[in-house]
Protein backbone atom coordinates (compact mmCIF):
# COMPACT_ATOMS: atom_id res chain seq x y z
CA UNK A 1 0.00 0.00 0.00
CA UNK A 2 1.30 3.46 -0.81
CA UNK A 3 2.77 5.69 1.89
CA UNK A 4 0.26 8.42 1.13
CA UNK A 5 -2.61 6.05 1.71
CA UNK A 6 -1.02 4.89 4.96
CA UNK A 7 -0.69 8.44 6.09
CA UNK A 8 -4.32 9.19 5.20
CA UNK A 9 -5.70 6.15 6.96
CA UNK A 10 -3.31 5.96 9.90
CA UNK A 11 -4.36 3.90 12.88
CA UNK A 12 -5.58 6.86 14.88
CA UNK A 13 -8.03 7.75 12.10
CA UNK A 14 -9.23 4.19 11.81
CA UNK A 15 -9.70 4.07 15.55
CA UNK A 16 -11.87 7.19 15.61
CA UNK A 17 -13.81 5.84 12.65
CA UNK A 18 -14.54 2.59 14.45
CA UNK A 19 -15.18 4.05 17.88
CA UNK A 20 -16.29 7.64 17.35
CA UNK A 21 -16.18 9.68 20.56
CA UNK A 22 -19.08 11.86 21.71
CA UNK A 23 -21.35 10.11 19.23
CA UNK A 24 -25.13 10.43 19.28
CA UNK A 25 -27.72 13.15 19.64
CA UNK A 26 -27.39 15.58 22.54
CA UNK A 27 -30.44 16.28 24.62
CA UNK A 28 -30.68 19.88 25.75
CA UNK A 29 -28.50 21.17 22.95
CA UNK A 30 -28.38 24.94 22.76
CA UNK A 31 -27.09 24.87 19.18
CA UNK A 32 -27.22 22.34 16.41
CA UNK A 33 -26.68 22.21 12.66
CA UNK A 34 -26.69 19.70 9.85
CA UNK A 35 -23.83 19.66 7.36
CA UNK A 36 -24.06 18.13 3.95
CA UNK A 37 -21.66 17.45 1.11
CA UNK A 38 -23.74 17.38 -2.09
CA UNK A 39 -20.87 15.79 -4.00
CA UNK A 40 -20.84 12.52 -2.10
CA UNK A 41 -23.93 12.70 0.11
CA UNK A 42 -22.02 12.80 3.40
CA UNK A 43 -24.22 14.08 6.18
CA UNK A 44 -23.40 15.11 9.73
CA UNK A 45 -25.25 16.75 12.61
CA UNK A 46 -23.31 18.61 15.29
CA UNK A 47 -24.94 19.32 18.66
CA UNK A 48 -23.59 21.86 21.14
CA UNK A 49 -24.50 22.89 24.65
CA UNK A 50 -22.93 26.26 25.27
CA UNK A 51 -23.23 27.89 28.65
CA UNK A 52 -21.50 31.19 29.40
CA UNK A 53 -19.47 30.95 26.22
CA UNK A 54 -18.09 27.56 27.18
CA UNK A 55 -18.68 24.37 25.20
CA UNK A 56 -20.11 22.22 27.97
CA UNK A 57 -21.06 19.43 25.64
CA UNK A 58 -20.51 18.57 22.00
CA UNK A 59 -21.85 15.50 20.21
CA UNK A 60 -22.33 14.43 16.62
CA UNK A 61 -24.17 11.98 14.43
CA UNK A 62 -23.08 11.17 10.89
CA UNK A 63 -23.51 9.02 7.82
CA UNK A 64 -20.18 9.66 6.19
CA UNK A 65 -16.76 8.36 5.25
CA UNK A 66 -13.92 7.47 7.61
CA UNK A 67 -12.13 10.78 7.11
CA UNK A 68 -15.22 12.83 7.91
CA UNK A 69 -16.18 10.70 10.89
CA UNK A 70 -12.76 10.65 12.49
CA UNK A 71 -12.37 14.38 11.90
CA UNK A 72 -15.71 14.90 13.66
CA UNK A 73 -14.75 12.60 16.51
CA UNK A 74 -11.42 14.36 17.06
CA UNK A 75 -13.18 17.68 16.84
CA UNK A 76 -15.50 16.79 19.70
CA UNK A 77 -12.53 15.78 21.84
CA UNK A 78 -10.61 18.92 20.97
CA UNK A 79 -13.49 21.29 21.61
CA UNK A 80 -15.12 19.69 24.62
CA UNK A 81 -14.87 22.00 27.64
CA UNK A 82 -13.17 24.78 25.71
CA UNK A 83 -14.38 28.34 25.53
CA UNK A 84 -15.85 29.42 22.22
CA UNK A 85 -12.82 31.66 21.66
CA UNK A 86 -10.37 28.80 22.28
CA UNK A 87 -12.47 26.64 20.03
CA UNK A 88 -12.11 29.13 17.22
CA UNK A 89 -8.34 29.15 17.58
CA UNK A 90 -8.29 25.33 17.42
CA UNK A 91 -10.50 25.39 14.34
CA UNK A 92 -8.49 27.99 12.50
CA UNK A 93 -5.27 26.18 13.45
CA UNK A 94 -6.52 23.02 11.77
CA UNK A 95 -7.78 24.98 8.82
CA UNK A 96 -4.28 26.44 8.34
CA UNK A 97 -2.79 22.96 8.37
CA UNK A 98 -5.27 21.57 5.85
CA UNK A 99 -4.80 24.52 3.53
CA UNK A 100 -1.01 24.47 3.68
CA UNK A 101 1.09 22.59 1.21
CA UNK A 102 2.82 19.47 2.37
CA UNK A 103 6.35 20.85 2.83
CA UNK A 104 5.47 23.63 5.24
CA UNK A 105 3.08 22.70 7.99
CA UNK A 106 2.47 25.59 10.37
CA UNK A 107 1.24 24.42 13.75
CA UNK A 108 1.52 20.73 13.00
CA UNK A 109 3.57 20.01 16.15
CA UNK A 110 1.12 21.65 18.50
CA UNK A 111 -2.04 20.28 16.89
CA UNK A 112 -2.02 17.02 18.86
CA UNK A 113 -4.22 14.27 17.46
CA UNK A 114 -5.65 16.64 14.88
CA UNK A 115 -2.28 16.59 13.14
CA UNK A 116 -3.15 13.11 11.89
CA UNK A 117 -5.68 14.73 9.54
CA UNK A 118 -2.82 16.36 7.63
CA UNK A 119 -2.50 13.25 5.43
CA UNK A 120 -5.61 14.38 3.59
CA UNK A 121 -3.63 17.13 1.84
CA UNK A 122 -2.26 14.57 -0.61
CA UNK A 123 -5.85 13.78 -1.61
CA UNK A 124 -7.42 17.05 -2.73
CA UNK A 125 -10.74 15.34 -3.45
CA UNK A 126 -10.97 14.36 0.21
CA UNK A 127 -10.16 17.65 1.98
CA UNK A 128 -13.84 18.55 2.18
CA UNK A 129 -14.46 15.29 4.01
CA UNK A 130 -12.16 16.48 6.80
CA UNK A 131 -13.53 20.02 6.91
CA UNK A 132 -17.27 19.25 6.83
CA UNK A 133 -17.60 18.66 10.62
CA UNK A 134 -15.82 21.93 11.35
CA UNK A 135 -17.98 23.91 8.92
CA UNK A 136 -21.00 22.35 10.54
CA UNK A 137 -19.73 23.32 14.00
CA UNK A 138 -19.34 26.91 12.79
CA UNK A 139 -22.83 26.89 11.32
CA UNK A 140 -24.24 25.64 14.63
CA UNK A 141 -22.47 28.45 16.47
CA UNK A 142 -23.90 31.00 14.07
CA UNK A 143 -27.37 29.58 14.64
CA UNK A 144 -27.74 28.24 11.10
CA UNK A 145 -29.68 25.00 10.90
CA UNK A 146 -28.05 23.75 7.71
CA UNK A 147 -24.80 24.14 5.88
CA UNK A 148 -23.42 22.77 2.66
CA UNK A 149 -19.73 22.19 2.04
CA UNK A 150 -18.64 24.75 -0.52
Amino acid sequence: MSDDLHELYQSIILDHNKRPRHYGALTEATHQAEGYNPLCGDKITVFLRIVNDRIEAIQFEAACCAICKSSASMMTEALFGQSVVEGESIRSGLSRILNSNTDSSPGLETAGELASLAGVRKFPARIKCATLPWHTYQAALRGEAKTVSE
Binding site: S2, K18, C40, C65, A66, I67, F123, R126, C129
Partner: peptide, 14 residues
Protein backbone atom coordinates in the same frame (compact mmCIF):
# COMPACT_ATOMS: atom_id res chain seq x y z
CA UNK B 1 -20.27 -2.93 6.04
CA UNK B 2 -18.16 -0.40 7.92
CA UNK B 3 -16.44 1.01 4.84
CA UNK B 4 -17.96 4.08 3.25
CA UNK B 5 -18.01 4.21 -0.59
CA UNK B 6 -15.87 7.33 -0.50
CA UNK B 7 -13.13 5.43 1.31
CA UNK B 8 -13.56 2.54 -1.12
CA UNK B 9 -13.02 4.94 -4.02
CA UNK B 10 -9.80 6.34 -2.57
CA UNK B 11 -8.46 2.87 -1.71
CA UNK B 12 -9.16 1.38 -5.11
CA UNK B 13 -7.66 4.43 -6.79
CA UNK B 14 -4.38 3.82 -4.98
Amino acid sequence: NEIHPHDIGTFLDA
